[in-house]
């Protein structure tokens, strides 16, 4: 491998790495209730926080979506909920909607790999929790 080849490869890797890292937000909608059930593997990274804060013992993944950054999307989720995301992850505007009604509005600087947990929103049986993660 010549120096020139290696330099080209390094630049390519750097550009690829910077463009891929942390440019997607993973949204999970979690149902919290006291029904019997095993914790799903899809929530393993936030189970500690959920059980510590919530009065409920059972958490199930209801819905999940991906949003590319910088965001400009309205993500419809189950249970009549929707998230509106706009802007870069350093200044992400996030709106939580139920039907057409906005029930929460926030601006947040999301850091890669750190979950943002929003709870607890009303549901027919128990509560709903949103988990956002930048990857």
């Amino acid at each position: 491998m010549t120096i020139r080849t290696f330099a080209v490869l390094t630049v390519w890797l750097w550009v690829a790495g910077t463009s891929v890292a942390g440019d997607t937000i993973f949204v999970r909608l979690v149902a919290a209730n006291n029904a019997p059930g095993a914790p799903p593997a899809a929530l393993a990274d936030v189970m500690g926080d959920l059980t510590k804060r919530s009065q409920y013992s059972n958490f199930q993944l209801v819905d999940s979506k991906k949003v590319k950054l910088p965001a400009a999307a309205r993500v419809k989720l189950k249970g009549g909920y929707a998230l509106e995301l706009s802007g870069p992850k350093e200044k992400l505007k996030l709106g939580v909607f139920h039907g057409k009604r906005r029930i929460m509005q926030m601006t947040v600087s999301l850091k890669e790999g750190r979950p943002l947990i929003l709870g607890e929103f009303p549901a027919q049986d128990g509560k709903m929790v949103f988990v956002l993660l930048s990857k």
Partner: peptide, 11 residues
């Protein structure tokens, strides 16, 4: 866990 939690009660 390095998580940020916004917890709203009795919403």
């Amino acid at each position: 866990t390095m998580a940020t939690i916004v917890w709203v009660s009795d919403m």
